[in-house]
Design a protein around this nucleic acid. Structure first.
Lengths: 69, 69
DNA sequence: AGTTTAGGTCAAGCTTACTTTACATTGGTA
DNA sequence: TACCAATGTAAAGTAAGCTTGACCTAAACT
């Protein structure tokens, strides 16, 4: 599951900590989601969509991440 | 988090077991989600949306369930 | 050189999502 | 009445999402 969080953040000049605060989650959670460590819960995905005022599908996609480890 | 699974299922005359099979989850998972016991993961929500060919927001909503226990 | 800011990561612990197995309830129908 | 299909529910276990606290690196600034 890919996401455009980093880009959406950059467009607004927000840090991971800024976004975390707005979404009421920890900074580590934002980092983990951006780095593809895990996917957000559905409620959190809704919160993200509401914050950026765009559909969930415009932020997250079902494409699988390429694991480069 | 409310959802329209039961209605979408009814429109297609599918049982909970039918839907579970199509989504590759257990019947209990479908039942639990319909009954509001918990929300699906984001990947499962995407799978549901793809199956019904409608946006996630057309199936799940932010509204909190009323707990009648 | 020392400090600050942003990002990356790890460990331990808790909660939520999901599984399997099993059993109870309800409505229809032979 | 007995049976069967669909639904509801529970217990116990695993996996995933999220927390706090801590530490490390790199870049920018004083």
């Amino acid at each position: 599951m890919k996401n455009r969080l980093k880009v959406l953040r950059a467009e607004r000049d927000w840090t991971q900590a800024d976004l975390a605060e707005k979404l009421e989650v920890s900074r580590q959670t934002i980092n983990a989601i951006e780095k593809g460590k895990y996917d957000p819960s559905l409620p959190l995905a809704f919160k993200v969509a509401r914050l950026f005022a765009i559909p969930i599908e415009a932020i997250f996609t079902d494409e699988v991440e390429v694991d480069i480890s």
